[in-house]
Design a protein around this nucleic acid. Structure first.
Lengths: 213, 213
DNA sequence: AAAGTGTAATTGACGATGTCAATTGACAAT
DNA sequence: ATTGTCAATTGACATCGTCAATTACACTTT
């Protein structure tokens, strides 16, 4: 035998490389993250990252997993710090937005694995599910208490999509300059909460569109 | 003098290259689009695309512009084919989704110029504005008729963000498998239309959250 | 008809990158 | 001291975006 790295040592080195990768992403942008640059910044040789990551896509997957773990951890303390379910859900959204705006590259990576990899990585699916499970707790409570009209499994994705869509529109430059991001965000929140349809008027003029509502 | 290409010839060749690029993107994916591959498929030499596009990012911008022009044109016929503003807006959304699901790579490109280019391309901004201006017409009419609670400048971005967010979540694999995309989409539509908050109950228990509503 | 001219297009070349194969090096067991 | 094993490095290659140098060609001029 020889000095085979323990699983723990290996994980530590891997985590360290991920940390370096994150620093590059944050300070120099997505295009600056190159395996060679990563190795240089980590003080190792060019191809050493391949000992810990199958390929570059695998490294990016690890970064995404790290991001979701971080968000999940933040949400845990949010649950502790906020008393009511509705407040918790609100704080989730605010925290999500804050993280995204502060770490745009990291955030966008969580939605772009398909750019670099064909199939969705199972590790990412796992942490996402953990994340969603945590979010579902106060949503379920709010639903049980009668404050929300939809249970978590039907509301979670919708709210997530709305927030992410706002951010995407913001970053892609598809928003008119005069539109203040905060203003649009406020509208989004109001519309999600109460809708943009004038119930009575639409029921009157489009009865077929209102079956059930 | 010699045979300088007319502006029209130049535009035609440019458009032809864009068409080839689109075909590569659609049939082989984003990563397959390389300038050399483009040239080969177009039957020209490696660096000839540089005569028509400043660099690769410039080519991608041209593809995006093409996409928005196409969507805008489709929306024009939608306005013609649907009688009422509310139906037109609904058809806009359905058409947008249909295009996105049928042309995922092309669609995703319209939201990812920042990956390849730092600043947002002014050409893209221009066609996006044209697109939004067209969408705003029936929205304004629906607002004037009292069917919508928000004017176009406050509603357009919110609806766009919601649709795009749904698609992103769908493609990124962040949706649980059991969630049917169509089911979530239906929920999204209902929530956007009428909200997910139980007005009465929340007003009762969270009066501070409901100021104004 | 022949030569000249300017632009389109091609070829040559370079640095950067992801990745694999071959090599080196250090430590542990014999 | 020798050997086996795995971490780590070095060497090498194909591919890519991009620029400089060169060639091909259509049209004008003589």
């Amino acid at each position: 035998m020889s000095r085979t790295l323990s699983e723990e040592q290996r994980a530590r080195k891997k985590a360290e490389l991920v940390a370096v990768a994150i620093e590059i992403l944050e300070t120099e942008g997505f295009n600056a993250l190159t395996l060679r640059r990563l190795a240089a910044k980590a003080g190792i040789s060019r191809t050493t990252p391949y000992l810990y990551f199958k390929d570059k896509a695998d490294l990016l997957v690890a970064v995404c997993v790290n991001t979701f773990r971080f968000l999940t951890e933040q949400c845990r303390t949010i649950i502790e710090d906020n008393p009511t379910p509705v407040q918790q859900v609100t704080a989730f959204g605010e925290n999500y937005l804050k993280f995204a705006l502060k770490n745009p590259v990291l955030y966008q990576l969580t939605f772009a694995p398909e750019t670099t990899r064909e199939e969705v990585a199972p590790e990412v699916m796992e942490v996402v599910e953990e994340y969603n499970t945590l979010l579902a707790v106060p949503m379920q409570q709010a639903y049980d208490a009668g404050h929300f009209l939809y249970p978590p499994d039907r509301l979670n994705a919708v709210l997530w999509a709305a927030l992410h869509g706002m951010l995407s529109l913001h970053w892609s430059g598809h928003l008119a300059e005069e539109d203040q991001f905060d203003q649009i965000l406020a509208d989004m929140r109001n519309i999600l909460a109460f809708g943009f349809i004038n119930r009575d008027k639409v029921r009157e003029d489009y009865p077929d569109l209102m079956s059930g509502n």
